[in-house]
């Protein structure tokens, strides 16, 4: 029992072990795997029917992501497909690497924070492009209120919205990090559990981890899509509303 508790206590203590050079090596490994798969898939692109299994898999993935983008963001979501697909491919390959290796880029909080910053930063950029700088920030201020309420509540909502935008970064990165790193740690702990009888209990978690691999890649892309749809989805109605309500508010 004490052994179990002792493994639990240093779950996060050994997290800082991998240096930046190690992360770079693993990122390079993931990219090499990714480009190897893509090069194999690219060979099967000719012809009317894709016979190459890699090509078929990537085609299905592309169609799925296209469906997701168009379904969530709307008809203008087609231009975000390359970004979402790149996120998916990198996260998926890195998660598969995490299944078999001790470390993986997605098991590093710094790497995930970088991806989340890109995702949320791009969402902010798109929001500014769609609504204009002022429109985008007035979007944070919540509904238009008049008189004293505007003075009292709007700043609070504004601060909360800004904080929630920052929290989005943390949530995207922490979710991926916690699932992949925690999955590895769970396997490690269960292997420790069966150490005395030489049974690797942790490896029985492999099916759940396989599910996690797909679901985490899906959720990262899905949430990016949802955030994009939140800032760009109601573009037209928001604009009309702004003009309608803007005049009395300024007067």
């Amino acid at each position: 029992m004490g052994g179990l508790l002792s493994t639990q206590t240093n779950v996060l203590a050994s997290a800082e072990a991998v240096s930046s050079l190690g992360t770079a090596i693993y990122v390079g490994l993931v990219l090499i795997l990714l480009f190897a798969v893509l090069a194999m898939a690219k060979k099967g692109l000719n012809g009317r029917v894709f016979k190459n299994p890699w090509t078929q898999a990537t085609e299905q993935l592309y169609l799925f992501i296209e469906n997701m983008c168009v379904g969530i963001i709307g008809s203008h979501g087609r231009k975000y497909i390359p970004m979402i697909a790149t996120f998916w491919l990198v996260i998926f390959v890195a998660n598969v690497v995490a299944l078999f290796m001790g470390f993986s880029p997605t098991a590093s909080l710094s790497f995930n924070l970088g991806m989340a910053l890109i995702s949320i930063g791009y969402v902010q950029f798109e929001g500014m492009k769609a609504n204009g700088m002022f429109g985008h920030f007035s979007h944070f201020a919540g509904p238009k209120l008049g008189g004293l309420m505007a003075l009292l509540i709007t700043p609070v909502i504004f601060v909360i919205e800004i904080v929630s935008e920052i929290i989005k970064n943390a949530s995207l990165s922490l979710r991926l990090y916690g699932n992949i790193f925690g999955g590895g740690k769970a396997v490690h702990s269960m292997n420790e559990l069966g150490h005395s009888i030489y049974v690797p209990f942790g490896e029985f978690l492999m099916p759940i981890k396989l599910l996690t691999v797909v679901v985490q890649a899906l959720i990262f892309c899905l949430l990016t899509c949802v955030y994009l749809s939140l800032v760009t989805g109601h573009h037209d109605e928001e604009h009309g509303e702004d003009h309608g309500h803007g005049a009395p508010a300024h007067a």
Partner: peptide, 13 residues
């Protein structure tokens, strides 16, 4: 227990 390395984050970007 938060193994953050902002240098890696910037490199990842």
């Amino acid at each position: 227990g938060i193994p953050l390395d902002l240098g890696i984050t910037i490199a990842v970007i």
